[in-house]
Amino acid sequence: MEKVRISKLMSERGLCSRREADAYIERGWVRVDGVVVSELGARAFPDQAITLERAAQARQTSRVTILINKPVGYVSGQAEKGYTPAVALIDARSRYAGDREPRRFERGHLDGLAVAGRLDIDSQGLLVLTQDGRIAKHLIGEDSSVDKEYLVRVQGGLSENGLALLNHGLSLDGKALKPAQVRWQNNDQLRFVLREGKKRQIRRMCELVGLKVVGLKRVRIGRVSLGDLPLGQWRYLREDERF
C-alpha cells in the first residue's frame, strides 16, 4: 500500500477541498492517527484516520453558501465582455425578505465565493456561490451525482425519435452524454433533469433534434429548489438544507 498526499485523502473523504486542506495543514489543524501534521505535501496511508482540529471545523461552519435567482444578462463567474458577474447582485438591499437564515449579511461573505455549477448569460434561475470547498466539490466534482433540473422553452419541429434521443443517445464533442430525463411540460416547454453540465449542453442537445431554445431556467439542484426566490434576489443556504 502506497502513501498518498494527505490533502488528496482529505478531499476524497469530503473533509474539505485540497486547497483548504493545505491551508489547514500549514496551520497545524490536521491530525493523522492523532498526530499533528504541519508539513505541506505530507503523505499518509489510505487507511489512516484523519481529523480536523476545532479551529478548522469552526472556520468551515462560518463559511457561507448563497443562492441567487440569476437574471438573463449576468455571467456566472468573472466579468467578461462588459457583462456584470452575478456576484454583483449580492448586497443587503437585494437579499430576499423571506430568507429564514438568521445570519446578518457581511461584506466578508463575498470573499472567495466560487460558482458551483455555471449558468450561461442567456439563462436564468438557481445559481450557487459558495465559500465551502466541500459543497463545490459535491456539486461539480468529476464524480458528482447531484442532478439539476431545468425548464426549457423551445421553438421548432422536434425530429422523429427526438424526445427519446434527448433522454439518451446524443453525443457532444465526440463523447456520449449520460442518460437524462426529458419530458414535455406543456406545448412549448420541456423539463430536463441532468447529471452533467457541459458548456451550453441543453441548447446544443436541442439543436441536434431540431429545436431552438428560447428560454432556459434552472429550478433545482439536488434537493435545493429555486422556490419563490424572486428574480435578481438571493438568500443563504440554510443549516437544515442539503443538496
Rank of each mutant, 00 (worst) to 15 (best):
H138I: 07
V154A: 04
L177F: 06
R134F: 08
V37M: 13
V35C: 06
Q57C: 08
W234C: 01
L211D: 01
R242W: 13
E39T: 15
L166T: 05
Q201Y: 12
Q155Y: 04
A58M: 09
T51C: 04
G210A: 10
A44I: 10
R183I: 00
P46S: 09
R19S: 11
G162T: 05
G112W: 12
G108S: 14
R107I: 11
R220F: 06
V72A: 00
V146W: 05
D132V: 07
I221V: 15
L229C: 01
L166G: 07
R103Q: 13
E2F: 06
R27I: 03
Q124R: 13
I68K: 01
L177H: 07
A56R: 02
I25D: 02
W29Q: 09
G156R: 07
E53G: 11
G14A: 08
E149K: 08
Q233W: 01
D33E: 15
R54H: 13
R191K: 12
W29I: 02
I121M: 00
G73I: 04
L211E: 02
G222V: 03
V72Q: 02
K178A: 12
R223S: 10
E12Y: 04
L15T: 07
Q131A: 07
M1T: 14
Q57W: 05
S123P: 05
R63F: 10
P71H: 08
S94W: 09
G133T: 02
G222S: 07
V213S: 02
E239N: 07
Q201L: 11
Q181R: 15
L216V: 04
R242I: 06
D147Y: 06
